[in-house]
Design a protein around this nucleic acid. Structure first.
Length: 106
DNA sequence: CGGGTGACTATAA
DNA sequence: TTTATAGCCACCC
């Protein structure tokens, strides 16, 4: 169960900076973000971190997708549609819920 | 310390 | 291509 926003955790700040470093029009996987943050294998922590982000965050959380090249949020959730729209706004091609692999970068 | 959960991943059928 | 299993890290009870 989620609780307070532990924003004082250094690992979380690192993840935020990595996510913020993703250039517009590009995307990265959870595992890639974790590796760039210096914690390979901590993909789940990245997902947990993003799930705790406030709705008014400036962090480009929508540029983070799973290794399958798909949005990892439930299709019937608000975040899913929101993420897809934001990505398309930046020029990322999303077809059938799948993201063009050429868009990967950091 | 043990068990359960989650915006994950890699590998095997 | 899909689903099943196992490994992974952090957090909660």
């Amino acid at each position: 169960m989620m609780r307070d926003e532990r924003v004082h955790n250094p690992a979380y700040e690192l993840i935020w900076q990595v996510v913020a470093a993703i250039p517009p029009g590009k995307v990265a996987t959870y595992g890639q973000v974790a590796q760039m943050a210096g914690m390979p294998g901590a993909a789940r922590m990245v997902g947990r971190c993003l799930s705790q982000l406030p709705s008014e965050t400036k962090l480009p959380w929508f540029r983070v997708i799973n290794a399958r090249g798909r949005v990892s949020l439930p299709v019937d959730s608000e975040g899913y549609a929101k993420q897809v729209v934001l990505l398309q706004e930046e020029g990322v091609v999303v077809l059938n819920g799948r993201i063009s692999l050429a868009k990967f970068g950091c």
